[in-house]
Design a protein around this nucleic acid. Structure first.
Lengths: 252, 252
DNA sequence: CCTTGAGCATGACGCAACGTGAGGGTTTAT
DNA sequence: ATAAACCCTCACGTTGCGTCATGCTCAAGG
């Protein structure tokens, strides 16, 4: 039931030092300590470590990982789905690298001295690590809205948080239902529902129309959120984006 | 024909600082400098950078990359083939990670609280970076033989080096021919050829029978070498291993 | 019972591979 | 000829651990 450092390290394929480090920076603190101070990791820790390793595999800085995992609305299953999407992207990149090797070999073998520089580097970075910055800075991360959100959430009581969360789920459910019933995203009915969603958002920060529109974009682009909504209903992310855009347009 | 830092950086998808760094540590020095000190990269530099990026993608430390690229017997094409093999391995790992996500999701969704820890981390490191150490330390890298080899090569004249290289190619060609003719790797004829190969090796260091045997093993295991021999003739790596093992056995 | 070897803990320093300015020339386009 | 865009060389900062050093802990065997 409990694992000591070396056991867990062996299981996960990381070093003991790495676990120490993760503990030191508060990324993965063991569930308990033995009377003599030994770190004892429980089953939840195993799952958390798995999440950490996936994020790390996808080159997110440890600090960013801590932030993600620390979000009150963090959804482990949605995160796994998002990881899968990102891994697929990476698989694509690696396949393009293999292709790059083949074209390079062909050129070299053919004795051609002229190899176009662009095709020499097809598939190398340019995106992978860059993405985290964009997604963090452009959408969330250290926007004022995000900081404000964190502050308000921190001030909420546990009960209040549960309420807010329930209301959020209810709103999304209502929107998913509207979508399934074929309600157009720009219709009056949809706009009322978006209004309700915006009211819910006010629990976190003051949402300007542009922010609401940006949020909608994010729902379809950011794998984390996309996964969250796809899980609820296929196509919901796009539906939300359209409905929120329509709402924002009516406000501008 | 010539590229300045930012151009090359843009093409390859790395930062200017990275190119500066590679220059500073002697990993990639630009072909020329403009009168005013600007770095000017030529076509050879493009190819070298490509190699560097492949090694880096495969997590080799920069120092190791410099060593590989600096070896007098470095074969760019064989290296590319080896990169491809290693990329395939990595692809396999990533695919296993995707599978890990799916099994984890299945367990979580099924409400099963019991998820076996081993399958939680299927596909994570445990090998990737570890490999370079093994391959470097166990086979080459900082063995005495390798250092001796480097020293002797450094003392050779350019003409002598060309001779040695030609002789090496001829020996391997003769061995490939023997293999194709169906000569058994343990036969007297093969042993004579191995003797000739050993003589050739003496240009680099004093090969003990065990070293010769180890070298044969390396030919089949180390992708770099394997690629080199496979290119010459399919199955040659294994053939050499067997022949060299037979020779070594006859010496022990 | 006690010792011994494997395991754990906490510092503390080290290192690779750049990121990030600072301060100051160069080139090119208008 | 002047601004915008690049380039150069220091030089210090950062991330994510690796690698000791020093000392406690714990199960197994003599």
């Amino acid at each position: 039931m409990n694992y000591r450092v070396k056991e867990l390290a062996g299981l996960a394929g990381v070093s003991v030092r790495t676990l120490h480090h993760y503990d030191a920076i508060g990324l993965l603190a063991p569930a308990r300590r033995s009377p003599s101070g030994y770190r004892l990791y429980g089953p939840e820790d195993l799952l958390r470590l798995q999440q950490i390793l996936f994020y790390r595999e996808l080159e997110m800085p440890l600090e960013g990982i801590a932030r993600e995992l620390g979000r009150p609305d963090f959804d482990p299953e949605a995160a796994l789905v998002a990881h899968r999407a990102r891994l697929e992207e990476k698989l694509g990149r690696l396949r393009r690298l293999v292709a790059t090797i083949d074209t390079t070999l062909a050129r070299l073998g053919g004795g051609e001295r002229e190899l176009k520089p662009e095709e020499l580097y097809e598939g190398f970075p340019k995106e992978t690590a860059e993405r985290w910055e964009r997604e963090a800075a452009e959408n969330w991360g250290d926007t004022d809205a995000y900081r404000e959100s964190r502050k308000r959430v921190a001030r909420m009581s546990k009960e209040r948080w549960a309420e807010v969360k329930a209301e959020g789920g209810a709103v999304d459910e209502a929107l998913a239902d509207a979508m399934r019933r074929g309600v157009a995203p720009g219709s009056a009915e949809a706009l009322v529902l978006v209004e309700r969603k915006v009211a819910h958002l006010r629990n976190f920060y003051e949402p300007s129309p542009e922010l609401v529109k940006g949020l909608g974009e994010m729902y379809v682009q950011h794998p984390e959120f996309r996964a969250h909504y796809e899980k609820q209903a296929p196509g919901l992310a796009e539906y939300l984006r359209d409905a929120m855009a329509a709402w924002a347009a009516g406000r501008a």
